[in-house]
Amino acid sequence: MIEELLLPFDYEYMRNAMLISGVIGAVCGLLSCFVALKGWSLLGDALSHAVVPGVALAWILGLPFALGAFASGMLAAWFMGFIRRNSRIREDAAIGIVFTAFFGAGLVLLTLFPSNIRLRTIVFGNVLGIAPGDAVQMLIVAAGVLLVMALRGRDLVLWAFDPTHARAIGLDTRLLQTLLLGCVAAVAVAAMVAVGAVLVIAMLVAPGATAYLLTDRFGRMMAGATALGGGSAFIGAYLSYFLDGSTGGVIVCLQALIFVIVLVFAPQHGLLAARRARQRASHPAGSIA
């Protein structure tokens, strides 16, 4: 029995997949706190799709694919900001136009220049078949994001909470915004490998949203979301061995399951807690035992 449960650890590709998924999941979880509190879910989704043409171009030009994807994501983010700042178009429309345009361009490039990057891999991810070189790229991205968080994390929290105050004490809020966008784009690239472009946004939202229901402290929220993202990605990859199903799908389902459980049962901000509070409010004290 135990032997059977340890079976996935016997295969190198499984060990790699679980390690890479876990690391990416943890970094995504960390960033998901900012995504949740800044209301950037849609933007994160857009970025994860906008990286596709960069991947294709990087392959055509023979560059590391993470580089191309990152550049493409940042360019898309800049376009969205540019349209919003300089026209009467609202943010959601700007996001919708830009990311679909990028994704479309990526599809065209991938079909015009048939490469060894299969479209399926980009859209749905393939962490089981990850090449050692790509795995190293992922780990570098994760380390870079962690470094940014260590050095500028507190400023980012301040900016997320009160941009006006951040500006008033002389922080460069534009730099902070670019920094956070850059991090989101970078992990979107990384997560694309694990779960694919379509499901990246789940990794970038679910852990933060779940942790947000559990605590009123940003520090704990970040710790919780990181653990949750990392743990669920690791376990999801592990389970996918037995289920023989899509790794990305299993990871995201697992995260969604945890979210639903927390949404209902969270001690303070859960649905049941809210109901209890309403009941307490509608009955005078003492009428319920």
């Binding site: 050095l151 507190r154 909470f161 004490i169 922080l171 605590t215 009123d216 940003f218």
Partner: peptide, 24 residues
């Protein structure tokens, strides 16, 4: 954003960020 997960102390401490080093 009143539901932001920060405590009273955290908010007041934000007034001191300008005096702290880069790591705050």
């Amino acid at each position: 954003d009143w539901s932001f997960p920060v405590s009273v102390r955290d908010v007041v401490m934000m007034g001191r960020y300008g005096y702290m080093n880069g790591l705050r």
